[in-house]
Amino acid sequence: MPGIDESLLEAMRLPGARGAAVVDWISGLALGAVGEAPGGDPEATAAETAELARLATESGVLAPADAGLGKEPPVQDLILTNTDSYHLLRFVTTTFDSTVFLHLWLDRTDGNLALARIRLAEMADRLVLG
């Protein structure tokens, strides 16, 4: 049964992984981080990715109107590509109040975005379901 650290280390075994973190998108706090962070500051990275995640989840256009009690995050993934890397954010669904996502930073030449997306989704589920 993986905890936060085990999940992050598993994410780091994906080809091209540079860094991984678990981030709360309302407070902007990194609950765990391994590997490198863009710019070298994991806390700043967490705060900035959290802001992006919050905008997406609160967007009336990008996030479908929520039904029921809203335990499911209205967005599943955010994918951002740039010239040398990919950023992949996977929202974690929990039954209790938690507002967290997994953030994986992938090298563009070595990383496989499609594979990473599938694996990260599995890791997010295992993190909270065991």
Binding site: M1, P2, G3, I4, E6, S7, V22, D24, S27, L29, L31, V92, T94, F96, D97, S98, V100, R126, L127, V128, L129, G130
Partner: peptide, 21 residues
């Protein structure tokens, strides 16, 4: 809680850190 299978380790850590901060 984790050993008895009531809660996944990650779920406990996330909820615990949430409550702690």
């Amino acid at each position: 809680l984790v050993d008895s299978g009531h809660l996944a380790a990650g779920a406990l850590e996330l909820c615990h850190l949430g409550a702690l901060f």
